[in-house]
Simulated scan of single mutants.
Amino acid sequence: MKWSYMDHWRSASPNGPIDQWQTLDSMDRFLKQVAAVGYDAIDTFDHRYFQIMDQYGSVSNYQEFVQERGLERIVNTFHAAVYDPRTYAPHVPETHANILEDFRVTMDRWSGISLDNIIVMPATLYYDMEPVTDDKIKTTAELWNKVGAITLDAGVKLTCHHEFFCGIQSKHELDVFYANTDPALVNLFVDTAQHCIATVDPVDFYEQYADRVTGFHFKDTRHQDLVGDYRRRPDAELMATTTPKWFHEMGDEGGLVDFEAFMRAVVRNGYEGWLSVEHDKANKLGGDHAESTAIARWYAKNVLDRIVAEEGSK
């Protein structure tokens, strides 16, 4: 198994924090740092397409830029849509035509390279969907079955990532959703921290749906949402009263995710795809993206990769 890095990033500059897309030089430094600590590839966000076109001319040109700095390729894109119940909301049938056309355009934009997955949050923010009913979840599932057919026709898997503030996040909601989606068209992308925050055990959840999992975000959390922070407007991650920082790197002393048990489950279920590390807002409270990225890679190499080797030798 190989490790990819989801490209959340901030670094210091004379003008304050910048992300790696600021200039070609900042992207060059970012990619070299990710490669230097041992990641094999990157994931990115779908909305970066416009910056890619402006700075590199094409998606394939950008991937060549990535490869020239020691990484294999771009593995996945995250389709971070701006959900709006008036125009773009999976539980609202009247918006489905707009969403389907969006994905036809999106797959054409990325056709210059071979992606494994296009990742989606399959529902609006929770407060825009509630009351979350089984009927709304079934309507949502109908949409993603259709989107999955579009992405599969383009050679890319559709996979669903459930943030703790997503309209589909509790165990019951997840079970209803996956019972009403076609396993051939709609896959699951397990985010260890997000499920843990939503009080869904990531190990048990992965074990239940392992045959539908096409990727992971490996990150940790020190907190579970027990007071309904997932409903906070406008951004549950920023407005929560229970913690100033939701996400931490693997190996964090206060982390709640049992990564060793999780990795044993991954190996036991025969997963053979990429593993992605993600660090949302790692720079909060004086944190540093480069440091978190290196720490997580150390943990992957010295703890998780050893588990893979041990389990494989049995």
Rank of each mutant, 00 (worst) to 15 (best):
N145V: 09
I150F: 04
L100E: 13
L158R: 07
V147Y: 01
A81G: 03
D84Q: 11
E64P: 07
Y88A: 10
L125D: 03
E101N: 11
S58D: 13
I52V: 15
M129E: 07
E130M: 13
R69V: 02
M53H: 10
A123C: 13
V132C: 05
H96M: 06
H162R: 10
S58N: 11
E94D: 15
K171A: 11
V59K: 00
Y127F: 14
W110T: 05
R109A: 14
T140K: 05
A80T: 07
P85F: 01
S111Y: 02
S60F: 08
R86Y: 05
F164H: 07
E72P: 01
F50Q: 15
I74D: 00
K136W: 04
V132K: 01
I118V: 14
D134Y: 02
P131I: 09
E173Y: 03
D108P: 07
V59L: 08
R69T: 01
W144D: 02
D134L: 08
V75H: 03
M129G: 02
K138E: 03
T106I: 07
S111L: 05
N76L: 07
P90H: 04
L152G: 12
T95D: 06
P93N: 04
L158T: 06
T87Y: 06
E173P: 04
V120L: 09
N117A: 08
V105G: 09
V66K: 01
R69I: 01
V66S: 01
L71I: 02
A80W: 12
S58C: 11
P131W: 06
Y83I: 02
Q169S: 15
F50T: 15
M121D: 07
G155A: 10
V92R: 04
I52K: 02
D153L: 09
Q55E: 14
N145T: 10
T124I: 08
I52H: 01
L125T: 02
L143A: 08
D153R: 10
T151L: 13
H79A: 15
M107Q: 10
W110I: 03
Y127K: 10
I113Q: 03
E64W: 12
R69H: 04
V147R: 00
C160T: 13
D102Y: 12
P85D: 07
Y83V: 00
E142F: 05
R69F: 01
E68A: 13
S114V: 14
H172P: 02
Y126Q: 12
Y126G: 10
T139S: 09
L71C: 09
L100G: 06
T133P: 04
F65I: 09
V156D: 03
L143M: 09
D102Q: 12
D134R: 13
I119C: 04
V147C: 07
K171G: 10
R86K: 15
Q169C: 14
W144L: 08
G112I: 03
P90N: 06
I137Q: 00
H96T: 06
A89I: 00
E173I: 03
F78S: 04
